[in-house]
């Protein structure tokens, strides 16, 4: 921070350059790369909101996929039943997420870490159960189709438009998270994470701040779920397995707990990882012979990477990044 304060010009220039590159990327790439970019950005929004809850407020959740599903189904159902436009559905998704967050934040007032993680599992099962009921009752067994949203009379479709939109939303979420973390609320969260009893003794309203973390994080997550529904053009319960929750937990571990930059790195890594393994395996001789083993190898490798980071690099990618940065840049940092 001190470096940034001393050299505001450099920092602004860097940020501007970063923004420009990110904005211009769509002009230079293929639709496929844009699709990957969009997937990464969606994962970023989800990972940032989970980081807020777990990495900053210290509340563990295994119900992340359930919240994403809740947002996606809110959008799907509103589009299907009321052909609602996106400026109704997306806020509705965020509100649904916030309400669920409030409901499932309540156990956090009594429960700690592991027990809390378990109660968030219940959230997942309940949301998926309700979603499945809706799909079955309405006869939508292959999922709910969602038409692309319309903005000023234009259909929002295709990689470029979505890339820009998701980039803007991801940036907004990043900024919101950054401001929250630096605010009084963020400091209260840090105190609660460090020691709840001490935080209470210091006069911090523990219950209120915990619930706030759940509400904000869940609202962002459900928003990401709603965006997913629009981007993919459909919603179905199969897209939100427990494994997805684990992937998000892995993102914040691999990225590095307690760092927003870490959440972004983790989202990037976990999203692109399977493609990397696939590419690595396909360079082996007789690649098609192993094709059947691809998924299993991918799965196993993902488990290994998770274990690797937990055992050998608890600081995550952001820790590696900080260590590898040139000494000159590090010098100004506290």
């Amino acid at each position: 921070m001190s470096e940034a304060a001393r050299r505001p010009l450099l920092r602004t220039a860097l940020l501007a350059a970063a923004g420009l590159v990110l904005l211009l990327l769509p002009l230079a790439t293929t639709p496929l790369l844009l699709d990957l970019g969009c997937q990464v950005l969606l994962a970023c929004i989800g990972a940032l909101s989970l980081m807020l809850l777990t990495g900053f407020a210290g509340q563990v959740s295994l119900g992340h996929a359930g919240l994403l599903a809740a947002g996606a189904f809110t959008v799907g159902i509103l589009v299907k039943e009321a052909t609602a436009p996106f400026w109704v559905t997306l806020p509705a998704a965020a509100i649904a997420g916030a309400l669920l967050g409030l409901l499932f934040g309540l156990p956090s007032l009594r429960l700690r870490a592991l027990y809390l993680a378990v109660s968030s599992l219940a959230l997942h099962f309940i949301v998926i159960y309700l979603g499945g009921e809706y799909e079955t009752l309405r006869g939508l067994s292959t999922g709910i189709m969602v038409d692309p949203p319309r903005l000023f009379g234009h259909e929002l479709y295709g990689g470029r438009a979505w890339y820009i939109l998701l980039l803007v939303v991801a940036m907004a979420v990043l900024l919101a998270c950054r401001n929250l973390v630096r605010s009084r609320t963020g400091r209260a969260w840090a105190a609660i994470r460090a020691h709840e009893t001490v935080a209470a003794a210091l006069g911090i309203a523990v219950a209120r701040h915990k619930l706030l973390a759940f509400v904000i994080s869940s609202a962002f997550t459900a928003l990401a779920g709603g965006l997913f529904a629009y981007y993919r053009g459909f919603v179905s319960i199969e897209a939100f397995s427990l494994y997805l929750s684990i992937q998000y937990v892995a993102m914040i571990i691999i990225g590095g707990m307690g760092s927003l930059g870490g959440a972004i790195l983790g989202a990037l890594f976990v999203t692109l990882f399977p493609y990397g393994i696939e590419a690595a395996l396909s360079t082996l001789p007789h690649a098609d012979r192993y094709a059947g083993a691809m998924f299993a190898s991918n799965y196993a490798a993902f488990g290994l990477v998770m274990i690797f980071f937990l055992v050998f690099e608890p600081q995550g990618l952001i820790g590696l990044w900080r260590r590898w940065r040139p000494a000159s840049a590090k010098a100004g940092r506290p």
Binding site: V60, A113, L114, A117, I246, V249, A250, I253, A293, F295, A296, S297, N298, Y299, A300, A301, F302, G303, L304, V305, M306, I307, L310, V311, P314
Partner: peptide
């Protein structure tokens, strides 16, 4: 921290699932 150990067992679970299929 206990949490790190728990998360490690999640990673172990994923690894084992992959290995079983392999």
């Amino acid at each position: 921290p206990a949490l790190a150990a728990v998360l490690t067992t999640i990673g172990l679970g994923i690894l084992l699932r992959g290995l079983v299929v392999l």
